[in-house]
């Protein structure tokens, strides 16, 4: 990896330059919150955002997408092409870049998912450093840092950005669109100071030791019943999660019933029917079992395959949950043996 320094004021140049060749997306404000959106005016880009309502997964794995068009008469696929225009997503925080890397394990390994892959392949990522918020706990999973999964990454040093360049395309983006200079020892020292300050900014350290084992050892714990009583089974946690990838597949016929589209849409393991089979058996009928499964899969199921937990500590689920259920609380409860309200 090599590094450059870019004056902060140059960001607008970079975005404007990129817009000539790419669709550029990034965080913009929506009321008091932020959302990833197409950037038509570089001034709309809000690199000072805290977090976005939906994570960038929506740009790779949309809430609802067409998988294929079909013809009923001969049960044939008419079209399953995936169209993905070249684009740059500007301003991803380390947690969200890590979130995409975790999604990659699911969608880009065995049985490569062509829809996700097409969008991933056509997208360049520009990351940006962040400030720990009250709800953040990325430090618990080491997802507060990111070492790959971006083309360039901008670390805020006050008046300038310390630019990490990861890919050839990233280097080209810089060369083509913006003026930068080499780093000095003073820049590196400041980079280190900022990193230490960032680390110190987290509100607490979450004790995650032996979590997968605890999930099994405390599988019958009353913690889950307490959480199940509170859970609203609304699925908001899954929707806003940068790493929840479950989906449902639905066929929709056109009004003439001759052709139709097979679509997929985000699903949630918190919904009653998520694990029920045609004969009527439901393998997770109680709310408690469903809440438990969400954590069991994230902290152990996924880990058993990919050696990482399926959480990046972004805190979105905790913010979205009306019942106030958060990974931080659940992990702490498992550690301590009870839900502390």
């Amino acid at each position: 990896m090599f590094f450059r320094i870019m004056d902060k004021s140059r960001v607008l140049d970079l975005v404007a330059g990129l817009s000539q060749d790419f669709e550029v997306l990034g965080p913009v404000s929506k009321g008091d919150a932020f959302v990833y959106q197409r950037i038509d005016d570089p001034a709309d880009l809000r690199l000072d955002y805290d977090t976005t309502l939906l994570p960038p997964k929506k740009l790779f794995f949309p809430p609802e997408e067409q998988m294929m068009r079909f013809r009923v008469a001969d049960n044939e696929v008419v079209d399953d092409e995936v169209y993905a225009a070249p684009r740059v997503i500007f301003g991803l925080h380390p947690c969200d870049i890590n979130g995409l890397l975790l999604m990659d394990n699911v969608f880009l390994r065995d049985y490569v998912d062509p829809y996700y892959k097409a969008r991933r392949d056509s997208t360049l990522i520009v990351g940006v450093s962040c400030t720990p918020q009250e709800s953040c706990f990325c430090n618990a999973w080491n997802t507060d840092e990111v070492h790959w999964g971006f083309d360039i990454f901008l670390t805020d040093l006050g008046d300038r950005y310390f630019v990490s360049v990861r890919s050839v395309k990233g280097a080209e983006l810089l060369d083509d669109h913006v003026e930068t200079r080499p780093i000095t020892d003073a820049d590196t020292a400041e980079f280190q100071r900022v990193a230490r300050e960032f680390e110190a900014g987290f509100s607490d350290e979450l004790n995650t030791s032996q979590l997968p084992l605890l999930l099994d050892a405390k599988f019958e714990s009353p913690i889950w019943d307490e959480l199940g009583e509170r859970c609203l089974s609304c699925g908001a946690c899954s929707m806003v999660c940068p790493t929840c990838y479950c989906f449902d597949v639905i066929d929709r016929l056109e009004p003439d019933q001759k052709t139709g589209v097979r679509i997929r849409k985000w699903d949630s393991c918190q919904f009653t029917e998520f694990a029920s089979v045609a004969h009527g058996q439901n393998f997770r009928e109680s709310r408690a079992s469903r809440v438990k499964y969400r954590y069991y899969h994230k902290q152990w199921g996924y880990l058993s395959k990919f050696e990482r937990v399926l959480c990046v500590g972004c805190g979105r689920c905790a913010r979205a949950c009306l019942a106030g259920i958060s990974p931080r609380e659940v992990v702490t409860a498992l550690e301590a043996g009870g839900v502390g309200e």
């Binding site: 998912d113 990838y245 997929r264 699903d267 393991c269 499964y293």
Partner: peptide, 11 residues
């Protein structure tokens, strides 16, 4: 094919 998540059984 291990993507949709519905058939989770244990881990």
């Amino acid at each position: 094919i291990g993507k949709c998540g519905h058939c989770g059984v244990g881990h």
